[in-house]
Design a protein around this nucleic acid. Structure first.
Lengths: 356, 356
DNA sequence: GCCGCCTGAACGTTGTTGGGA
DNA sequence: TTCCCAACAACGTTCAGGCGG
């Protein structure tokens, strides 16, 4: 009954090596092929046999070798995730949620992180991921150039990026940054503000550009004067610098700041300059990081749902992988998901402008 | 000259499939085995042959299949990283740096992230990583239980965790939390404070426990009264709650807070209660997250070098993998690295106590 | 007899038959 | 028949041997 010629894995003297299908097959009294069918849930296996095999698998603590499986099936069941940039609240959250979704979907994600964007390093990372035979590549990085570089490498797998502007060679998932900016302006205009400044992130970031665009559009739609935005680097220090500049500007009554970190620095500068928020000047941030509710004063800001963003990313990857895989029948016509709009969180940093 | 019986990979009609060693061998006019030696940098290959093979590799854009390589060599060249907990500044930074170091060392890291700690989910993650044949498992999570759970699963690979207390079954890398707490107290005592309170993190976190211990020790060494610590949940909100409590305590002149986020909430509560910092009360934080320098007032805090922590983690993994691998000659006597001490960053939230 | 190269056999799976109750 | 299962051949590497110059 025991298969004879096959059972080679004869557990040598030294290390108790990892059991193989053959070990399971021998223990269950079937062929290795039957074990394979049980593992892959194929239909034609007798219930009794299936149970016997399962038992043997459990007894031996057998787990199939992903390497062998990948080789034979020509599928790695793994995804590549590139994280380029500072480990900020937003990207970290999105990456976490993406990882979780990928894990739930049975994929392994091999992640490569880099603190700064260097074209060659980024290209190299993509190539390495492709060499690892990942089935798709995901990029989380706000910098336009990063997305362009990754999109420009010739890979034979889907590339998905978190990006608020279209980029060739890349499928996108995004949050509607311009809508958030518009909401900020509408809120301030509703309070009676007319001189609304903007402290932007670096223009090489797509989100920064989009927020500027939304701010401009909303200002124009109300016929308001659009002063040139002040550009910062996302960090509190550059927010401080912008605050120094704005404290000297007697005409401004409100500021829409590109993110919460800069808003924090800006509040600091205004405090140092003796300008009161929101009495003298209203401030709106962007992101709603956990700290924002406790700034001085608590910050009115736009919350981005980074968790949903991460999940959307995995959903798109899954569709892309399912679509063209079936055959040529499916035209792989998967659309990028619609961007979600940020939601306005009103706190104490905004109020009607001071009476002139 | 061309090998005949072997060159099977005959590029079928449809998809241009990935080239194999045989394709390279055929193009270079050598055997597949010679290609392998070139790839692995073996000695006995003539220089001219080597060059020819390299050329063929480049021409075909050949990259070896990691699956096949793993199967034949019985090494996956991959590491497992588990991230359990909120995506805070510290863990995110350490993970980023670890990833980078692993990448530089030629390892693939397959990362699984989970927002909260559930024993079964954590065990499952470990098992899945083991099933993937990772060569080591790294855990980044401050919660004691997480480390214990991961350490308790019977895996046949090294397990390394970021942990400030010893845990069985786990190699450790850490920052000296108690030393940081002592430094905080010394700083405050040096300013003349005697009634120094502590707002701790949840005691299920090792770091929280260690900071309490350091605070106690330092207080005792100065013969100071040790009031029971207030326990929070690391978040700004719980810092606010602690602040409310402390604002009512007329005897306290200084607070050492378990992390910067809670310190922020605490500052907020004190402000709301009309207590001035540092005039009425001094505040010290922990972590030095990027925001801390712009709190109101800028926060005196203890900086942890999370980047170094991440690198140390990878270094330990590398040693562990190199050690026992060679043979039984090396007793695998690799020590855990010495914990690094946090450094005190003095800002505006601390000052001498008000004159009584 | 030493270098340089090749042949043959694993490694542990998944497809694809074809044959036995 | 209608299921179920076994044998055989990939998949793309690395590792022992061996055989020419």
């Amino acid at each position: 009954m025991a298969t004879d010629a096959s059972g080679s894995a004869g557990t040598a003297a030294g290390e108790a090596s990892v059991p193989t299908m053959f070990d399971v097959a021998r223990l269950a009294g079937v062929s290795h092929q039957t074990v394979s069918r049980v593992l892959n849930g194929r239909a034609d296996v007798a219930e009794a046999t299936r149970a016997r095999v399962q038992q043997a698998i459990a007894d031996l603590h057998y787990t199939p070798s992903p390497a062998a499986r990948a080789m034979a099936s020509r599928r790695s069941r793994s995804l590549g995730l590139i994280l380029a940039g500072r480990p900020d609240y937003g990207p970290s959250s999105a990456a976490l949620e993406f990882n979780q979704a990928a894990y739930a979907a049975g994929y392994t994600v091999s992640q490569v992180s880099m603190r700064s964007l260097q074209r060659s390093a980024l290209r190299e990372a993509v190539r390495r991921l492709v060499a690892q035979r990942v089935e798709a590549i995901v990029l989380i990085s706000g910098e336009r150039e990063a997305v362009e570089v990754v999109g420009s490498v010739d890979v034979r797998v889907p590339v998905v990026a978190v990006a608020s502007e279209p980029v060739s060679g890349v499928r996108r998932v995004a949050i509607d940054q311009a809508a958030g900016a518009r909401a900020a302006v509408e809120h301030l205009v509703g309070l009676g503000h007319r001189e609304i400044r903007h402290v932007a992130g670096p223009h090489r970031w797509m989100d920064a550009t989009e927020r500027v665009r939304g701010w401009r559009e909303a200002m124009a739609s109300h016929g308001l004067r659009v002063a040139p935005p002040i550009e910062g680097e996302w960090l509190p220090d550059s927010g401080y610098a912008a605050g120094v500049e704005l404290a000297a500007d007697a005409t401004a009554t409100a500021v829409f700041v590109g993110n919460d970190q800069m808003a924090l620095g800006l509040l600091h500068a205004l405090r140092d300059a003796g300008r009161r928020v929101p009495d003298d000047l209203s401030v709106v941030g962007f992101d709603d990081e956990p700290e924002a509710a406790h700034f001085a004063p608590p910050l009115t800001t736009l919350r981005q749902d980074f968790d949903a963003l991460g999940r959307d990313t995995m959903s798109l990857v899954a569709e892309l992988l399912a679509g063209p895989g079936a055959s040529a029948s499916q035209p792989a016509s998967v659309d990028d998901p619609a961007p979600r709009a940020p939601s306005l969180i009103v706190r104490a940093s905004t109020a009607p402008p001071p009476r002139a």
